[in-house]
Nucleic acid binder design. Structure first.
Lengths: 348, 348
DNA sequence: AAGAATCCAGCAAGCGCTTTCTATATATGC
DNA sequence: GCATATATAGAAAGCGCTTGCTGGATTCTT
């Protein structure tokens, strides 16, 4: 059998209550007693039973982090930053929390199931990262879940996600629309008038906002968009590669390709190169996020930097109640345009 | 108050026991009764209390995945594959398990603390990914923990990590040494005789094995290594960049740079380019892992492909008891040499 | 058609901890 | 020195669920 609190108590010749108090350090215990208990714990190699503790105390030390794709550094970086603030192990004693990353794979059902599982575990906090699905019934279901979680005392924070009104969740929203606009404006400023756009998956807020920003910029400069200039795909390299080929097929006269994110942009670059086009001489390329590899692309990628680490850290602190939530519960995080080698004046 | 089993039972006019059995589906319940219970669950929006359930049943549905750096796709890809097999949500009903990713940040203490936390939660399984620290006392502590976990019924699987003898853990080990040897042999075959090596952090099995493979290849071809040719660093781009500058300073006559992994290789490439050296005309570059971005590097990166996804999936299945563990509990996973544009014959 | 086998549901005893309340022992005030 | 605060430890009542056991109602056997 595994060692229980009672065993420790017996060995230290105290009551179970005392052992519990020593372990939790939330009640005065005489130094000599504490000493004795600690020794017994050590000798017996006792490990607290988490579920029992959670049940009795009606609290848990679990913090959930939901990500769309854990293999994507975009999420990895945020998750890492969040986890860093959760303390996880490494934080000072007592505040030991198990930060767990849950990979939804972009599936609405999994997102919901994970939320239920976390609710079931009575998680102390939940951080949802990245764009939300825009499917109406699902959005409503998620909102309902978040409200429930909040009511049960779980702190809910959205990081890089639009606010969820009436759920009590705090939101750190990325200004995807603004970033998209700025990026395209940069390209327009260089002289581009025929711009292809590789969008992310449909029904995702991130996809829509970035695309809207792009279109705002076009509209602001009186550029009439050709419907053939937009292709939807996934947020990965391969998708960028294929979409670019498609774009080129539809309109070989494009002088710039704006991608939904950096991975897509890298795929796009590969497709352009293989099509015999030089970057940026023949076609300019732009990404979004400024992931670590973007600066190493050749030529280095023009993109919009999102402070993923900073935002994640802040979300983590808010989730832990260690930082004041933003006024109104909502804060907008801006991106910063990074002009690099992949964008230049259009070819004649 | 939150809804409890008893509330559901009352509403469905059955005993709590029956509700529990309906929910767990491990005991015969009349169809009409089940129907009634399910309706009550729905109407009350009941969510099982995880800790209570885990306590009573003495089991948990938590599966832990330990990674060194969640922001690194190397781990992200494995974690994703593991989680995919854990079922997590998405697996068929009943088998719902919460796969949680724990980020150790490469810190021995955090690794240990996470293991304790998982032990505390009575995790159903634990998968440790990536290289282990070689610090002796720590290794012993981890081994002891793993043994304890195993004894408590937690299935322990190592993925991309050397076996931990006498712990009962199953191991899917990457053949880092063999891969390193093959890679360097390729370079030697091209004619290189002066090869720089950017190793990972010291006291890590992955670092050591790859380096040993490299040296085996050198030795096998009678190449005497200059101590100045090896630099240690972290497993990231920046480290590769700095180490390469250092390498160039120490011996500008190097004709090849072998990196501990792809990220480091990309950083190395950047440093070489900025130093006015062409790849591979002036200096060849090689990485390890074959992460997704490696094929997009310019020139594309010669590297050793590790089947991260496949290995992770297999580890996940073994952890879930859905696949026979390898004979002897240990399997070696080989890498595959990917010769691409970044390696060529040495300059004259 | 009576006894045996089969179903299905309930009772109740925990699972291992936390915490309120109570009891004892020592310290403090006047 | 006696009454009153102040520490410290214990007793015991759950927390919400699972499950072995029990028993009444059905169905099967011969």
């Amino acid at each position: 059998m595994t060692v229980t609190l009672a065993d420790v108590a017996a060995r230290a010749q105290v009551s179970p209550a005392t052992v519990s108090r020593v372990l939790n350090g939330n009640y005065p215990v005489a130094a000599t007693t504490r000493e004795r208990v600690l020794r017994a714990v050590d000798e017996l190699d006792y490990v607290l039973n988490g579920p029992a503790s959670a049940l009795a105390a009606a609290t848990s030390d679990l913090v959930g982090i939901l990500v769309n794709d854990i293999a994507d550094p975009f999420f990895g970086i945020m998750a890492s930053a969040i986890q860093g603030e959760i303390g996880g192990p490494g934080g000072r004693a007592g505040g030991e929390r198990l930060a767990v990353v849950c990979n939804t794979g972009g599936s609405p059902e999994r997102e919901l199931t994970y939320l239920t599982l976390l609710q079931r575990q009575r998680a102390a906090a939940v951080v949802l990262t990245g764009g939300a699905m825009e499917n109406a019934p699902h959005a409503a279901a998620v909102a309902a879940k978040l409200r429930k979680l909040g009511e049960a005392g779980t702190r809910v924070v959205l990081c890089g996600r639009p606010p969820a009104p009436d759920t009590g969740a705090f939101a750190l929203t990325f200004d995807n629309r603004g970033g998209g606009r700025e990026l395209t404006e940069h390209l327009i400023g260089l002289g581009h008038r025929r711009l292809g756009y590789i969008a992310g998956p449909e029904e995702r807020t991130t996809t829509r906002h970035r695309l809207e920003g792009h279109r705002e910029a076009l509209a602001a400069h009186g550029i009439v968009e050709d419907p053939r200039w937009t292709v939807h795909g996934r947020y990965d390299r391969r998708s960028g590669y294929e979409a670019t080929l498609e774009l080129l097929r539809r309109d070989p006269s494009l002088t710039a390709v704006v991608a939904a994110n950096d991975s897509v942009a890298v795929g796009a670059s590969a497709a352009l190169r293989e099509s015999g086009l030089r970057i940026p001489d023949d076609v300019s390329v732009a990404g979004f996020d400024d992931l670590p590899f973007s600066v190493d692309a050749v030529p280095s990628l023009t993109t919009v930097r999102l402070p993923l680490s900073e935002a994640g850290a802040r979300a983590g602190r808010i989730a832990m109640g260690r930082e004041e939530p933003p006024p109104g519960g909502i804060a907008t995080v801006r991106g910063e345009l990074m002009v690099r080698g992949s964008s230049g004046v259009p070819r004649k």
